[in-house]
Simulated scan of single mutants.
Amino acid sequence: MNNIDAFNIAVAEILGECYREFPLRVRLSKLDIGETIKIAMGDDPDGVYNLSEKEYEIAEEAMNWLMEAGYIWSRKPDNRISMEGVTLSPKGLEILNAVPETLQEKKTLGDLISGGVKTIGKDVATTSVKTVLTYGLKLSLGT
Results as ranks from 00 to 15, higher is better:
M1W: 08
M1Q: 04
N3M: 03
D5N: 07
A6S: 15
F7D: 02
F7C: 00
F7R: 15
F7P: 00
A12L: 07
E13F: 03
E17W: 01
Y19R: 11
P23L: 08
R25N: 08
R25I: 01
R25L: 04
V26M: 08
L28W: 01
L28C: 06
L31K: 14
D32L: 11
D32A: 14
I37Q: 03
K38C: 12
K38G: 02
M41V: 07
G42R: 04
G42V: 11
D43R: 09
G47I: 11
G47C: 07
G47Y: 06
Y49W: 15
N50A: 09
N50S: 01
N50P: 00
K54C: 00
E57W: 01
A59I: 07
E61C: 01
E61H: 13
E61Q: 14
M63K: 15
L66D: 02
E68G: 01
G70E: 08
Y71W: 15
I72C: 04
R75V: 04
P77I: 02
D78F: 13
R80N: 06
I81E: 08
S82G: 01
M83T: 01
E84D: 15
T87R: 13
T87Q: 09
P90C: 12
G92A: 02
G92L: 08
I95D: 03
L96W: 05
A98V: 02
P100S: 12
P100M: 05
E101N: 07
Q104F: 12
E105S: 14
T108P: 08
T108R: 10
L109G: 09
S114R: 15
K118Y: 07
G121K: 12
K122L: 09
K122S: 09
D123K: 14
T126K: 14
T127S: 13
T131R: 12
V132R: 04
L133Q: 07
L133F: 03
Y135G: 05
Y135C: 00
G136W: 01
L137I: 13
L137H: 13
L137D: 06
L139P: 00
L141C: 03
T143M: 14
T143F: 12
